[in-house]
């Protein structure tokens, strides 16, 4: 059977939206580079990345709708929820900034994402395990790629180094939200479906230390932490993103290809 421990479907569905919304919102952000990346090869690579993430978001949100049991599809969740119903972390909704900022955000997220997906191999729900297994292969490549580029650019020219350090200084305060445990996380951990986010932190810290040492970058102190997205408290940026992402379904409800 799919689930080993009985869990409140509302809580389960909300957790799935956290995972799915991270993927779909970051996927949309990355898709904004399409046609604008610094070189053609990067443009295509970023489009692939965006499509991977949107595909993963579709699977997670599809399962969220199924678990919720109210007849909502992945599309309903992606295109018909308003800001406050989204559960993605703030990091992924931030504007792309320059190419360095986009890459740094990607690295900070990928290094967390891969740890989460690996730990979901043990998830006590086969549907979660299946989606995580598919996503893990894709994210392993995303992680490899963003790591490589962060090192190259951090350890590149004076200009590229300065841009990567600036990006890190700007984005780092948004990372702690990935590892905050709240009540919902505890419920998921008790049901043995997902790990407590805080347990992913040591591996993430090691990755960052290792990569930043090679890149010559320094993570700032986390004096000020930005969070809220996991509970639906978002920055102004998400509304603008949704206005574009959801336009078609809002203006032409039920429109199909």
């Amino acid at each position: 059977m799919t689930s080993s421990t009985a869990i409140d479907p509302t809580a389960f569905a909300e957790w799935l939206q956290r995972v799915g919304d991270n993927a779909i919102i970051l996927g949309h952000r990355i898709s904004e580079w399409c046609g604008h990346a610094p070189v053609l090869e990067e443009d295509i690579a970023l489009a692939n990345l965006a499509l991977d993430l949107i595909g993963q978001g579709q699977l997670w949100l599809g399962l969220a709708g199924e678990v919720e049991g109210k007849g909502r599809s992945a599309d309903d969740l992606a295109y018909l929820r308003d800001c406050a119903a989204f559960r993605n972390i703030l990091l992924v909704e931030l504007p792309n900034g320059d190419f360095g900022q986009t890459l740094m955000r990607q690295f900070l997220f990928d290094s967390f994402h891969i740890e989460l997906l690996r730990s979901l191999r043990e998830a006590g729900d086969s549907r979660v395990r299946d989606i995580a297994a598919k996503a893990e292969k894709e994210v392993a490549y995303h992680f490899e790629r963003s790591t490589d580029l962060v090192i190259r650019l951090g350890d590149g020219t004076a200009e590229s180094h300065a841009r990567m350090q600036r990006a890190l200084d700007k984005l780092f305060r948004y990372t702690s939200e990935m590892f905050v445990d709240d009540k919902l996380d505890e419920t998921m951990a008790e049901a043995k479906i997902a790990p407590l986010p805080s347990t992913l932190r040591p591996a993430w810290d090691r990755t960052l230390a290792h990569v930043f040492a090679q890149a010559g970058l320094t993570a700032p102190d986390e004096a000020w932490r930005q969070k809220g997205g996991k509970n639906g408290v978002h920055s102004e940026h998400l509304g603008h993103l949704l206005a574009e992402m959801q336009f078609l379904q809002r203006a032409y409800p039920g429109a199909r290809w």
Binding site: V39, L40, E41, I44, A45, N48, Y141, R145, D148, R152
Partner: peptide, 20 residues
């Protein structure tokens, strides 16, 4: 063909451009 700063990046770019 494609552009890349070195062989390692060329492989990555080739993966993204030609094996989609």
């Amino acid at each position: 063909s494609l552009h890349a700063p070195d062989a390692e990046m060329a492989i990555r770019n080739a993966r993204d451009v030609y094996t989609r």
